[in-house]
Simulated assay, not measured.
Amino acid sequence: MTKENKNKVWGTRVKKPTSKLLQSINSSIDIDKRLFNEDIDASIAHCEMLSKQKIIKGESAKKIISGLKKIRIEIQKNKFKFKTEHEDIHLNVEKRLFEIIGDHAGFLHTARSRNDQVATDFKLWVKKSANIIDKNLTLLIKSFLNKAKKNIDVIMPGFTHLKNAQPVLFSHYLLAYVEMFKRDKKRIKNFLENINENPLGSAALAGTSYNIDRNFTSKKLGFKKPTNNSIDSVSDRDFAIEFLFIASLCSVHLSRLAEEIIIWNSDLVNLISLEDSLLTGSSIMPQKKNPDSAELI
C-alpha cells in the first residue's frame, strides 16, 4: 500500500491523497467524537460475536478488546489526539487501534461497514440521551409534586392575555406542568420502544455472507432484537428526527414555565421574588437583579 493511502479505509482504489479542502468538508470528528463510548461498546460487542462465531481467532479478539478499552481510557483522560484526516470517531478509533495492536486491528471490521457502525452508534447515543431526559423529567415531576403539596392552599391570580382572570390554587398551576411532563415521558417511552432494534450486521446495505449472530450483538448492546431489513437499517434516521421533536416539545414546556417566571418576577407584576443565587446584575445599573437563569431556558 502506498504511503498516501495508509490512512484510508478504501485501500489503493483511490490513487491520490484526499485534498485538504475535501478533508475539511468531509470531517465530522469535532461533532461525533462524543460518540466514542457508543462506538467502542459496539465494536467490543461485534468483536466478541466474531470470536464466538469463530470468524476471527480468540487471540485477535482479546488484543482488539484490550486495545479498545485502552483507547476509551485515553479519550476519557483527554490523552487521545483526534485527527481531522481520519474524518470521524470510527476511523479515529480504528487507526489508533492499529497503532496499539498492529495488524490484528484489521479483523475488527470483518462483516461490518461504517454504514451499520454509524447507524448503531448514533442510535445507542440517542437511546442514552432519551433515558437521561426521562430520568430528569422524573425528578422534575417529583419536585413539582412536593412543591404543590406544600402550597396546597395558596391562592394566586390566573392570567389570560396577561390580565387577571380568575383566582386559582398555586398547587393547581404546578400540577398543570406535571401533566405536560408526564406526556413528555410517555412520548419518550414510546420512542424508546420504537427504536429498540439493532442495525449492526446490516453492513453497507446488503448484509454479509459471514455467519454472524445479530441476536448476540443485540443482547450485548441492549436492543430488543435486530432490525429486519438491511437497506432500511443503514439509511434510517427517523429516530433522530423523532428524538428532536420530543426534545423540542419538552423544551417548549420548559420555556413556557421560564417565561411565566420572568413575567411574575417583573417589576410590573411583582408576584414572586427569586433567590439571588439565580439572578445576575447589570454592569451599569446597580439596582438591577435580572432573571437570567429563566431567560436562558
Rank of each mutant, 00 (worst) to 15 (best):
E4K: 06
N5I: 12
N5H: 06
N7L: 08
V9K: 00
T12R: 10
R13M: 03
R13A: 00
V14F: 15
K15I: 12
L21N: 06
L21D: 07
S27F: 04
D30R: 09
R34S: 13
L35T: 09
F36N: 04
S43M: 12
E48W: 00
K52I: 00
K54W: 03
E59F: 10
K63L: 13
S66P: 01
S66A: 07
K69M: 07
K69A: 01
I71R: 10
E74K: 13
I75E: 01
N78A: 13
F80V: 03
F80D: 04
F82S: 05
E85Y: 02
E94P: 07
F98I: 11
F107Q: 10
V118P: 07
T120H: 10
D121T: 05
W125M: 13
V126G: 01
K127D: 01
I132L: 15
I133Q: 02
N136Q: 14
L139G: 02
I141D: 02
F144M: 14
K149N: 14
K149H: 07
N151W: 12
N151M: 03
I152G: 04
D153H: 11
I155K: 15
P157G: 05
G158M: 14
G158H: 14
T160S: 14
N164L: 10
F170D: 06
M180Q: 09
F181Y: 11
K182Y: 11
D184A: 06
K186V: 08
K186M: 07
R187C: 00
F191W: 02
L192F: 01
N196V: 08
N196H: 08
N196Q: 09
L200V: 03
G201M: 05
S202K: 04
S202Y: 03
A204K: 04
T208F: 05
S209Y: 06
N211E: 10
R214K: 13
N215H: 12
F216C: 05
F216Y: 15
S218G: 03
F223L: 13
F223E: 04
K224P: 02
K224E: 12
P226I: 13
T227L: 14
N228V: 15
N229C: 11
S230C: 08
I231A: 11
I231Y: 15
S233V: 05
S233C: 06
S235I: 03
R237E: 02
D238C: 05
F239G: 07
I241F: 14
S248K: 03
S251T: 05
L254P: 03
L254I: 12
A258P: 01
I262A: 04
W264G: 00
S266C: 08
D267N: 15
V269Q: 12
V269C: 11
N270S: 15
L271R: 11
I272S: 11
S273P: 08
D276M: 03
G281C: 08
G281N: 10
S283I: 10
I284D: 02
M285D: 03
Q287E: 09
K289P: 06
N290K: 05
P291G: 06
E295M: 11
L296P: 02
I297Y: 09
